[in-house]
């Protein structure tokens, strides 16, 4: 098993702490079947793929993909990019990626190249077609809160003179942004999905999206298949069976070569 990056430097007061869902993504990306799929999709001698994780949180998943690029993609020649709406998460991830790479120093293993962290709403700042591998562990918990109100807190600057109760409120809202998904826990995921065909490279692109049972994964899969006959979706990871139902699933979403693409 590949080592899990350390996140001991991260303050979990306002950044999502690696949990079962994060670990399921690590296990899925490094599973024999996904390694096989990724190595085939990104042959050794072809151009460097861009791996972008949306909503990186502590950065544990992206740091894992970056540090273990040789094992997962069959080559160290990958670019990784971190995106989060929460600036604290952007900062934490930069450190997590750096630490995971230096922890391997001396082991003669080459790691990927980290492009940096950007603070953004999902894939909104990405150019069309530039992402080859998109990883998304969404805020998937069904919630009643207004996501627009929560978003406002990410726009605001932290106040250094804030009272402890004001700081607590701000931190709680930032954390809520990492798990609260609105109706069916799908409000944020649906925005990402609607932009996915634009962001992903139409020839090489593949997305790994985590869902929970309340997200109605079967309906999500039907929705993706309805985009175009060339879009595929498969469950490639799951965990936490309760009464026969998998609580968490990882979907792999990818287009087949479109007829007119290069």
């Amino acid at each position: 098993m590949l080592p899990t990056p350390s996140t001991s430097h991260v303050s979990f007061d306002n950044v999502y702490e690696p949990s079962e869902d994060s670990f399921l993504l690590l296990d899925t990306l490094s599973s024999a079947s996904e390694v096989e799929f990724l190595k085939t999709r990104f042959p050794k001698n072809e151009a460097v793929p861009v791996i972008a994780e949306v909503g990186v949180g502590s950065g544990v998943v992206l740091a894992f993909a970056n540090a273990h690029a040789t094992e997962i993609f069959g080559k160290p020649h990958v670019l990784t990019l971190a995106i989060d709406i929460n600036r604290h998460a952007c900062e934490a991830t930069r450190q997590t990626v750096e630490k995971a790479s230096t922890d391997l120093a001396g082991s003669q293993v080459s790691v990927g190249t980290f492009l940096g962290s950007i603070q953004a709403d999902l894939g909104s700042a990405m150019r069309s077609g530039v992402v080859d591998v998109l990883i998304f562990n969404p805020p998937y918990v069904p919630s009643e809160e207004s996501l627009a109100d929560l978003r406002d807190v990410a726009l605001s600057e932290p106040q250094f003179k804030a009272s402890s109760s004001a700081k607590f409120e701000r931190d709680s809202k930032l954390l809520a942004l990492s798990y609260a998904g609105g109706a069916d826990g799908m409000e944020t995921t649906n925005i990402l999905l609607s932009d996915l065909p634009r962001i992903l490279n139409e020839r090489r692109g593949v997305a790994y999206i985590l869902l929970c049972a309340q997200n109605k994964p079967a309906a999500v899969m039907e929705y993706i298949k309805s985009w175009h006959a060339n879009w595929n979706v498969e469950v490639v990871g799951h965990s936490g069976k309760t009464a026969g139902w998998e609580v968490l699933q990882v979907l792999r979403v990818w287009p087949d070569n479109l007829p007119h693409s290069k």
Binding site: R87, C90, E91, I118, A125
Partner: peptide, 14 residues
């Protein structure tokens, strides 16, 4: 700022 670009738009521009 400090190497991190902020692409969040104010609500009325989203």
């Amino acid at each position: 700022k400090e190497g991190i670009a902020n692409f969040l738009l104010p609500a009325h521009l989203v």
